[in-house]
């Protein structure tokens, strides 16, 4: 799950891309908040079936990622770095409260990675970058054997923005997310798009 967060993070933070990771990091730091649409396909090898979901997303640098599912179910998921308490309120309390902590850690890692800290990433992954600034692809393979037992690889691809993101789990499940209609967000636009429902489901 931690890996997935990382992935999501990358997804949100990689719109501008150069040939080496340092360039990329510099561009990430300059990237404004982003909003757009996503289509997520989760292939479940065990059932040989795919779950497709669609919706809107919104990334606010250093603050949070909002994931608003529209089909097949309506849900609003928020991942924030610091404030676990807000998740407790928003994520649905009661029996659901138990796993907030774990997801909190995942989200926290995700958003800290959004800062483009490749140093941290490279501790866990062998990272290869291919292509040019207009059409690039990054492959990440976990360094730790223990992690590879759950996660084979991650890949990200895009041009000006991140366009697709994939995750190959060790049990042959695959998560593919593709993004469209992406646009940078002005500071005044924070009330719009994916965030119109502050109280979640």
């Amino acid at each position: 799950m931690r890996i997935l967060s990382l992935l999501l993070l990358l997804l949100c933070s990689l719109p501008a891309r150069a040939f080496d990771l340092e360039d990329l990091q510099a561009r990430l730091a300059a990237t404004p908040d982003i909003a757009g649409r996503f289509e997520q396909t989760r292939y479940l090898a065990d059932l040989d079936t795919s779950l497709v979901s669609r919706g809107q997303f919104r990334y606010e640098r250093d603050t949070r990622v909002v994931w608003r599912l529209e089909t097949p179910v309506e849900k609003r998921l928020v991942f924030t770095p610091q404030d676990a308490a807000s998740l407790d309120e928003k994520g649905g309390g009661g029996a659901n409260g138990d796993d907030d902590r774990r997801r909190q850690q995942a989200a926290e890692l995700l958003l800290s990675l959004l800062d483009g800290d490749w140093e941290v990433l490279e501790r866990r992954f062998d990272i290869t970058l291919a292509g040019d600034a207009e059409a690039w692809r990054v492959d990440l393979v976990p360094r730790q054997q223990a992690v590879r037992e759950r996660l084979k690889s991650l890949h990200l691809a895009g041009g000006r923005y991140l366009q697709t993101l994939g995750l190959h789990a060790a049990d042959d499940d695959i998560l593919e997310v593709s993004f469209s209609d992406q646009r940078p967000l002005g500071a005044d636009a924070s009330a719009a798009t994916a965030d119109e429902d502050p109280n979640g489901e």
Binding site: M1, S5, L8, L44, L69, K75
Partner: peptide, 22 residues
């Protein structure tokens, strides 16, 4: 019955690694 919603969320969250059978 109240556990269905969180399970759906897990199934569709990009952070989750759902196991619908197990």
């Amino acid at each position: 019955a109240a556990l269905v919603e969180p399970a759906l969320e897990r199934l569709f969250s990009p952070l989750g690694s759902p196991q619908p059978v197990r």
